[in-house]
């Protein structure tokens, strides 16, 4: 396209805004603009340096994080204190959503491997939002619920596959 015809007057700020980023997340994709603006006031934007610990295994967690930019390493420690990588997450991924429902100890540690911007959604803020304006909060909660249940579904499917494989293996063993 000829750059002359580019619409330079179109408002392109929105695509860089926090609300636009949130609307691209799977759990918040059904939210309307007003509800996104509401969500924008609940979340916290946090900046992390390279190699900065986000949380450690065993900390009392209080919420989930979404990666806006950068990279996060999720790891656990074995009994010798050696790190076992669990996952490397990039922009658009989220982690720590279990702590959103109850203050449980974190089951893994997270560390920023690049300069990272995280968007935190925390239990206390969500509870206050439920008290103040139940309708948008319910929609946010439903979105979170959908994501968590999708994960559960996927997990149970994989479990089913593993079970079948195990049964096949045992059959082969008995046949031999």
């Amino acid at each position: 396209m000829n750059p002359f015809w580019n619409n330079i007057f179109r408002d392109r700020g929105y695509e860089k805004s926090l609300a636009y980023f949130l609307s691209s997340m799977p759990m918040f994709k059904d939210l309307e603009k007003r509800e996104l603006a509401f969500l924008e006031h609940i979340v916290h934007v946090r900046n992390y340096e390279v190699n900065e610990t986000i949380f450690s295994e065993g900390d009392i967690g209080s919420g989930m994080y979404t990666i806006r930019s950068g990279q996060v390493q999720i790891y656990t420690l074995d009994e010798h204190g050696l790190e076992i990588d669990q996952a490397i997450l990039g922009a658009g991924d989220f982690f720590g959503e279990i702590a959103l429902t109850a203050s449980r100890p974190r089951c893994a540690s997270a560390r920023a491997t690049e300069t990272t911007v995280l968007i935190g959604l925390f239990r206390t803020d969500l509870l206050e939002a439920v008290r103040r304006s139940p309708a948008p909060s319910a929609k946010i909660m439903l979105g979170l619920n959908r994501v968590v249940s999708d994960r559960l579904l996927q997990c149970s499917c994989q479990l089913e596959e593993v079970k079948e494989q195990l049964a096949d293996n045992q059959k082969q063993h008995t046949n031999e």
């Binding site: 916290h44 946090r46 209080s62 935190g120 206390t124 206050e128």
Partner: peptide, 21 residues
């Protein structure tokens, strides 16, 4: 209060948020 809380270092942010609530 959100502005003040956001000044806390990352390491203690969750705890400060909980305590504040």
């Amino acid at each position: 209060m959100r502005g003040l809380i956001s000044l806390t270092p990352n390491r203690y942010f969750e705890m400060v948020l909980d305590i504040y609530a």
